[in-house]
């Protein structure tokens, strides 16, 4: 397959928050990577999960479906979920879809960490 690798997913921890960095496009091709990263942080006992977006100029409805899948898991596992780093456009889309009811939307990582501390 010649297609460029459109999404890079990595995980790290900061102040008790499991951060999943998503750099690139979130489309149908992202499913395996995002689910794997989520399972990894969950198996490590994460209670607070932050999806930290970067350079995400393309998220589509297939990508949104993947994120809704994560919300389902987060609810099942009694974790808390937040997102950060989304462009204005995708913040709007997340609100339209209703994802904002299940995941706090923060401008950036710093703000998200502070936000998690408030509810911790």
């Amino acid at each position: 397959m010649m297609l460029e690798d459109e999404l890079t997913v990595s995980t790290r921890e900061r102040d008790g928050v499991a951060i999943i960095d998503l750099v690139g496009d979130v489309t149908t091709f992202a499913e395996e990577k995002i689910n794997t990263a989520y399972r990894e942080v969950t198996n490590n006992g994460a209670r607070f999960v932050l999806l930290n977006f970067r350079q995400n100029d393309y998220i589509n409805s297939a990508g949104i479906a993947i994120l809704i899948g994560i919300v389902t898991e987060v609810n099942r596992n009694s974790q808390r979920l937040a997102v950060s780093g989304l462009s204005q456009h995708f913040q709007k889309i997340f609100r339209m879809v209703g994802l904002a009811q299940y995941a706090e939307i923060y401008q950036d990582e710093e703000e998200a960490i502070v936000g998690f501390k408030r509810v911790a």
Partner: peptide
């Protein structure tokens, strides 16, 4: 589509046409 329903379903998709309309 409603996100509450999508959370229950196996298929979480079906947002495309609705998004276009919005």
């Amino acid at each position: 589509p409603k996100i509450e329903d999508a959370l229950e379903r196996d298929d979480k998709g079906g947002w495309g046409i609705w998004l276009i309309r919005e």
